[in-house]
Design a protein around this nucleic acid. Structure first.
Length: 270
DNA sequence: AGATCGGCCTGGACGC
DNA sequence: TGCGTCCAGGCCGATC
């Protein structure tokens, strides 16, 4: 399940082989919801950056970047170049024919999304339009994070998943950061000190996962087909029943905001 | 306007 | 073996 570290790893690999290339042709599965990705045909890829869990590629018509290709991996999305030990299968939902390569977008569960918008116009993509700051960027400050969390009465985990107080945190890294900060995922009031602690653990958890090129359980793979190495380092997510590494209490699994949530009932108090 | 919830989608795990 | 049921979950849109 690609979150910020996984998308960042994909971006780094994709950038090298995509930027500067012209998209000659685009094929998209008519049953998928990204019909308008055809608008990328004929354009040159002028760049590639990650924003939260989104990949954004400005498209140039030769003079200026008027459009933008917006990509989201969903749950099971992956980019693979033809060759490279990869041959297309039944789950390829879109294909980009480039000058010097063919790039497939494979997505078993079809939660991924590819779309072309006018550059910077995210009105049709509400989460991107209202996306919080980059957690590893200079604009993400503990006091602003505290203020953002106070704007809502939702449980803190639901707030993290909403992408509004901060961008790119999904179910795995939310559980990890909350455990690390000793904050109950259902807590609705987060004081200044706890907000600062969570600010720090979010950054630590994400930075460490980027170093290991993300977390792979089954589906997530990089552009080169390899897996991320972070799965073995998870302390909370998916570890229900195992002893908390901090206090030994059995980790418990509950549902918060409709999502499976693992936490320590002893050292993550509300 | 903010919060909540169901739907999307598929494969895999599990129970009988 | 084979069928049915449930689960995983990011995002979106309908509804309260």
């Amino acid at each position: 399940m690609p979150e910020l570290p996984e998308v960042e790893s994909v971006a780094r690999q994709l950038r090298r082989r995509l930027v500067g290339r012209r998209i000659r042709e685009v094929w998209a599965d008519p049953q998928s919801r990204f019909v308008d990705v055809h608008a990328a045909a004929g354009a040159q890829v002028a760049g590639l950056r990650r924003r939260g869990k989104y990949l954004l590629a400005p498209l140039s018509d030769g003079r200026q970047a008027t459009n933008e290709l917006v990509m989201h991996l969903g749950m099971t999305g992956a980019f693979r170049f033809r060759g490279d030990g990869w041959a297309p299968d039944d789950y390829v939902r879109a294909t980009f024919v480039l000058d010097d390569a063919v790039l497939d977008f494979r997505d078993v569960r079809r939660f991924g999304r590819l779309t072309v918008v006018r550059a910077g116009d995210y009105a049709g993509i509400p989460t991107l339009d209202d996306l919080g700051p980059e957690p590893l960027g200079a604009h993400f400050r503990p006091e602003d994070f505290h203020r953002a969390l106070r704007r809502s009465r939702m449980p803190v985990k639901a707030q993290l998943l909403s992408q509004r107080p901060v961008a790119g945190v999904g179910n795995i890294y939310a559980d990890e950061a909350l455990w690390q900060a000793r904050i109950n995922p259902r807590a609705r009031r987060i004081g200044r000190e706890r907000a600062a602690r969570l600010w720090e653990t979010i950054r630590e958890v994400l930075a460490a996962a980027i170093e290991r090129e993300g977390t792979t359980f089954r589906d997530y793979q990089m552009v080169n087909g390899r897996s991320g190495r972070n799965a073995g380092f998870l302390v909370a997510y998916g570890q229900q029943g195992r002893p908390c590494p901090r206090c030994g209490t059995a980790l418990r699994k509950i549902t918060v905001a409709g999502r499976g949530t693992t936490y320590c009932p002893s050292c993550q108090r509300v």
